[in-house]
Amino acid sequence: MARVKRAVNAHKKRRTILEGASGYRGQRSRLYRKAKEQMLHSMQYAYRDRRDKKGDFRQLWITRINAAARANGMTYNRLIQGLRLAGIEVDRKILADLAVNDATTFASLVEAARAALPATEAAA
C-alpha cells in the first residue's frame, strides 16, 4: 500500500485557509489560527448575504422608483396600486431601469396608473 505522508495534506489545508484569508486585516491574514476562525465566519456571512442581496436590490429599486414617481407627482405607493388596478405587470427591477434610462416610458406608466386609480385616491 502506498505510503501517505501527513505533512503534504497539512500544508495544503493551511495554505488554502491562508489564501482565502488574504487581504484580511492584521493577524487574520497572517496567522493560521486567526485566519481559520475568520474564514468560518466569512463563509457564513457570504452565504447569508447572497440571500440578502435579493432584498437589498429590491429595496434600491423601490427607492429609485419612488424618486422618479415623485418627480411625476405621485408616490410609490399609489403608483404600484394604480399599476395593479390597470393590470400592468412590470416588475420593480424593470421599473427602476426605466426610471433611470427611459424617463418618457416611465412617465407614460405613471399616467396609466393615475388613470386606473379611483377618483378619490388619484387627487394630486
Binding site: 434600491l60 429609485r64 422608483i65 424618486a67 415623485r70 418627480a71 426610471a99 433611470v100 424617463a103 416611465f106
Partner: peptide, 9 residues
C-alpha cells in the same frame, strides 16, 4: 440624492 432615479446608497 434620494430625489433622483440614479440614487445609490
Amino acid at each position: 440624492g434620494k430625489h433622483k432615479p440614479v440614487f445609490a446608497p
